[in-house]
Design a protein around this nucleic acid. Structure first.
Lengths: 344, 344
DNA sequence: TTGTAGGCGTTATCAT
DNA sequence: ATGATAACGCCTACAA
């Protein structure tokens, strides 16, 4: 409480004690008499004393706050993760400072500099789609900043990671499409270099192989900006449907892309699932209200946020650095709805 | 940069100067020789010196950060506002600390205590739906904390406010329904006591009056939890449709409620707009992809965030307290789609 | 032009 | 059991 905030010094003066005595009384030190403690506590209570966290940060070189970097909080998946992060952080007395990269590498670097300069005790990050150079993260990590990656992790940095089982998620979605009679299943994925895209692609391919459906590389496309840029998505979709042998189903690699593709189909008056089926990763709360109701692969976002935060706090509060890092994998769930209904 | 951070003292020692000289050189004081400045700057640059914001906060009693309290970041309206807030704040060198009340009064009080103790320089808040007692805000305001309200404002506190023209938004939506042939238009609104609900209700009523449509109080209902609680919404809807003279259109007072009502209709197999038309406040990016595509009243959320932040920074950085507060009103836009199509 | 000292709020260390 | 002092990193009034 910055405004007219009462300090230890104020209490000391008022009670005719020294600041150290007051400080100790407040922290219930055994070397302070019961009476003094009572006195100090009563006064502090009455005047609503709150220790100044800024001063504490300066002294303790820790801020009891953790930084979070995501691409976009307006994305359900990430806002659900943030809720998970908060649920743990607040319980443990940590503040959460949220930054958005908006999928920009440049912005991510700025965010990180900012957070680092605010003396965050640790960092939770899902890297931007544009990020291919990880020096900014390595540098912070080398300086000893505890980092836990979630969702979009960085392989080259050795620390805890919490990810989704992208491969199995993609596998199940693809199998579902195959079993419902779809044969030419396209995969529109996020940036090719990303860890996530790789996992999703591998699950997709494995499903095709396991069911003796030939893999056609022409049915696999990437959007560098992961659907944030609708024009890019449109370009890729146009290219996909310009082919002679057109797909009869599309498997989309991210929430934004799933919505974008749905928009694309509607604007082209393509009927779903009659003309084209659609399944995509999405954590939207309203996927069931869409036209058509969307079959999605849903990720345990809240759980992911919780787990990542627990791991981070473990590192932050560890007495000695632990070199034994977890790679925690959470399952994705296939929710079947109209957009992938059995082909007649 | 908490980790091995270089300080002014380090620079002073390395260069054989005093900390004050270094400090002044860094701030380009006129009383430092050009040479010394150059020397200090070069060294600082080379070692990537960054002033410690914690120390600055302690000294200056300001943190260059502003607190934001919203009910839910997962709500498009609020996440868009936050993007607006950030866009201004970062430009002006302010950090944004986001807290969610989850529509809980208790949580709002906790959030506020927390933010206040973190020495925020100012507060942007849209109060929770549960909040009817404003003492926690008054107290902070009286202590001199600059506050700007947005969207859900508190009348009794005299400061800048940025709101939507709820009345005109509701008026236009209602007129649109009337002109499309709907006669029994229900209004499901958020908490009756709220400023927002009042505005929306008055616009709705005025539209009916202006078009000689009788006002039927039985068609007006409230959800205390603003649609967050689906069971409550369901109860109100059930009551609404249990009446003899059923509505032929529903005008919904918030994003969550709009989606909830859509879900309600679908679960009851009611066709939209054939059986029942629907128009609602919503900032969802995907309202056009729903079944049916939804007619919405869209609010300039990003602009709202920007404007509120500009006003707040004006107060924060004002030399002398200004008693002349703005009540900035932004227009809402009606976006017509299928869910309110003309009645045959 | 540069240096010294004190203070922002707190706590740890070392007296008393 | 309590107090004085120094320190965290920075800035600034005052000295030199």
């Amino acid at each position: 409480m910055r405004f007219e905030a009462i300090t230890i010094k104020d209490i000391a003066t008022a009670l005719g004690l020294s600041t150290s005595t007051v400080s100790r009384a407040l922290r219930d030190s055994h070397e302070i008499s019961v009476e003094t403690k009572k006195l100090v506590r009563a006064y502090a209570e009455e005047h609503n004393y709150r220790p100044n966290p800024i001063a504490l940060s300066l002294k303790e070189k820790r801020s009891r706050s953790i930084g979070v970097v995501v691409c976009e909080i307006a994305n359900s998946f990430f806002s659900q993760i943030i809720n998970g992060i908060e649920s743990i952080a607040y319980d443990r007395g940590y503040n959460v400072i949220i930054s958005q990269s908006h999928e920009s590498y440049k912005r991510e670097v700025i965010d990180l500099n900012y957070l680092a300069s605010r003396s965050i005790d640790g960092l939770l990050i899902s890297v931007s789609m544009e990020t291919t150079n990880f020096d900014h993260l390595k540098s912070l990590h080398n300086k000893g900043l505890p980092i836990v990656f979630f969702d979009r992790v960085v392989d080259e940095i050795d620390t805890h990671k919490v990810i989704i089982d992208n491969s199995t998620g993609a596998y199940n979605a693809t199998v579902h499409l195959i079993e419902n009679g779809f044969k030419r299943i396209a995969n529109i994925n996020i940036s090719e270099h990303s860890f996530i895209a790789q996992g999703r692609l591998s699950g997709y391919k494995k499903a095709l192989q396991d069911h003796n459906v030939p893999i056609d590389e022409k049915l696999i496309r990437y959007c560098e900006h992961g659907g944030q840029d609708y024009a890019e998505l449109e370009r890729e979709m146009d290219a996909l449907f310009a082919q002679k042998k057109k797909p009869d189903a599309v498997f989309a690699g991210s929430d934004t892309m799933t919505m974008g593709i749905l928009r694309y189909f509607k604007s082209r008056k393509m009927r779903i699932p009659e003309d084209i089926a659609l399944v995509g990763f999405s954590n939207s709360e309203n996927a069931d209200l869409l036209q058509p109701a969307l079959t999605v692969i849903k990720q345990p976002a809240f759980e992911m946020g919780k787990k990542a935060t627990e791991l981070l706090l473990k590192v932050i509060e560890a007495k000695r650095p632990d070199k034994d890092f977890e790679n925690f994998v959470l399952p994705a769930e296939l929710v079947v709805r109209e957009s992938s209904e059995r082909k007649k």
